[in-house]
Design a protein around this nucleic acid. Structure first.
Lengths: 159, 159
DNA sequence: ATGTTTGCTGCAACCGCTTGCGTTAGGGCA
DNA sequence: TGCCCTAACGCAAGCGGTTGCAGCAAACAT
């Protein structure tokens, strides 16, 4: 379209984790493109959770030409590679977790909108129950459990 | 009190549960309109889960003029009244549960797309853990937990 | 019946995300 | 180095769901 690539400052942070992605992709017959590089750069600077929109915004900060469809498609690919995972927030919107991170779920308060993480150990008994009674292997990180936190139960903000 | 709307066959099923809605609404200063009547009729014939789109479709079968925004807004109101609940499926889309129904969550298999219900007792220990460690009261019915069922773990469909 | 209040409706635009399609360009190979 | 195959891109349309707004009509009162 325009210049060779308006992406001069796309310096990949050399974290061992991310530097192999290019080869991972090629090994699968997939390609290493400037757009993917941008997204990987953004992800490498990200910890915890991000929504799709946030990722698109951050990519645009690096390369304003970024289009959403490309970002979302690349996120799918990276999830296949096992580099990220996605889940859904309490409102159903997508949320991406950058790995490596302890697998964890979320709890969300309807009233105040707060969210907290729950660890694998705290959900362990549920996971075990599902495994034994349904022979089901659950993916905790996909889940956001909604409810009410203690503070809101005692003193609802303004319901 | 036949309405002026083209809604001739809107015969409310006289289930005790639903017949009081009109008064519930009025008691709160809200209104009983033909559109709401249509939706309530649809819900009264529904058990288990429905998606938003399905509800819109079924309403249109009764009144082709039905518009989505009205349906979704009415669903919000009915949820306030405690007549239904909504949650999010594994893909983040809305799912409505018609009450009264035992509060239950869902598990969804990524591979085969199957879904199963999980009862309150099976999630009890998770709910207790959340209550004691985070002082959080969870709403089980809002949740769909994704993962893999036994069959797919043993013999992945094709992936 | 008629008026008044204000909750509700339908429209159209928008949001987050996905998809189909024609075009571009990565990258293995000669 | 240049060729070719096809993965990936950008665009535009679409889907499920939401929202602001102007007009409409329930419901209560006169």
């Amino acid at each position: 379209m325009t210049s060779p690539r308006p992406n001069p400052s796309a310096v990949i942070r050399g974290d061992a984790l991310w530097s192999g992605i290019r080869d991972d992709l090629r090994a699968r017959g997939l390609r290493w493109t400037p757009q993917r590089r941008t997204l990987v750069e953004v992800l490498s600077k990200t910890q915890g959770h991000v929504t799709g929109v946030q990722l698109v915004e951050r990519c645009r900060a690096i390369d304003p030409e970024t289009t959403p469809s490309t970002v979302y498609r690349t996120l799918d690919v990276l999830e296949d590679l096992g580099l990220i995972r996605h889940g859904h927030g309490a409102d159903g919107r997508e949320e991406f977790h950058v790995l490596p991170a302890a697998e964890h779920g979320h709890i969300y308060c309807h009233s105040c909108g707060g969210t907290w993480e729950i660890g694998h150990d705290q959900a362990a008994s549920l996971l075990e129950t599902l495994a034994s009674e349904h022979r089901f292997t659950a993916d905790l990180s996909h889940v956001t459990i909604a409810g009410r936190c203690a503070a809101c139960l005692e003193a609802p903000p303004s319901a």
